[in-house]
């Protein structure tokens, strides 16, 4: 059976990715990043709404989480895609909008919107937990110095909450890289979509899906290295030391150095 596995396909997909493939990889990256960024923003807004004095805002925030955590992402993606189509036709969402490197067609746009909204619901919980983790005395101290609520939030509470939020946020992005594959089903050829198309024309599913798994692994690994870097840096300043430039360079190369040691 294994003899039937065409290694050269895998080889070629890994070492000589063609232009179409690189474009698909790039789509996965920018769609994930965009959806994560907007997801964090939506989550932050929803988290602040939840703490609002105005009760309809609190209710709205609760409903948001209820609905978007309680239904499958794929349903939300289809809903946004076809829903927007039904409401506005595809004309409202530009069929292809050109932002230099980004060629955003309607489907990719709908995909980013759906993934962002879904992510926002999860981020709201993460951000809320981060804010709750900060001692109430911090807000009081800030207000006792004459800061109004928003200023105290922005300058004192949120920067501290950010340290609590970063580790789970990193995990969310790891998930996002993989979950973004679902938007293939509304016709966006990102990494998974590219593999799907190749396999359907060659009938070599195992080769192409092995290759695509490899590339997802590359993305998530790179991200986990970056994430570890950020977390280390945060934990250093948490301990009350400002890392020197030399230490920072050292930290940045620490995983590589560790691999080096492991290999020896």
């Amino acid at each position: 059976m294994l003899a039937a596995f065409e290694w050269h396909i895998l080889w070629q997909r890994i070492f000589h990715p063609d232009h179409v493939f690189v474009l698909a990889l790039w789509r996965t990256i920018y769609i994930s990043v965009a959806a994560q960024v907007f997801g964090v923003l939506l989550g932050l807004i929803a988290a602040l709404m939840r703490m609002s004095k105005i009760w309809p805002l609190r209710v709205l925030s609760g409903l948001y989480v209820l609905v978007f955590r309680g239904t499958p992402v794929i349903v939300q993606i289809f809903f946004v895609y076809f829903g927007a189509n039904l409401l506005f036709g595809f004309n409202l969402i530009p069929r292809t909008a050109n932002f230099g490197l980004f060629q955003l067609d309607g489907a990719a746009f709908a995909g980013i919107v759906a993934l962002s909204i879904n992510e926002g619901a999860y981020m709201r919980e993460i951000i809320r937990a981060g804010i709750d983790a900060i001692d109430r005395g911090q807000m009081e101290a800030a207000r006792s110095l004459g800061m109004h609520y928003r200023l105290a939030m922005r300058r004192i509470v949120l920067p501290q909450a950010a340290r609590v939020i970063v580790p789970p946020l990193g995990n969310e992005f790891n998930n996002m890289l993989k979950t973004s594959s679902l938007i293939f089903f509304i016709g966006v050829t990102e990494l998974f979509g590219d593999a799907e198309i190749r396999y359907s024309t060659t009938f070599k599913p195992v080769e192409y899906f092995t290759a695509v798994a490899f590339w997802y692994l590359v993305l998530t690994t790179i991200w986990s290295v970056i994430q570890a870097q950020i977390e280390r840096k945060l934990s250093v300043s948490e301990r009350g030391e400002e890392p020197s430039f030399r230490e920072r360079v050292f930290q940045a190369w620490a995983p590589v150095a560790a691999w080096g040691r492991g290999a020896r």
């Binding site: 005395g137 911090q138 009081e140 101290a141 800030a142 006792s144 501290q160 009350g240």
Partner: peptide, 8 residues
């Protein structure tokens, strides 16, 4: 404050 509440 009793517990200082400096910004860490």
């Amino acid at each position: 404050f009793q517990r200082f509440n400096l910004f860490p």
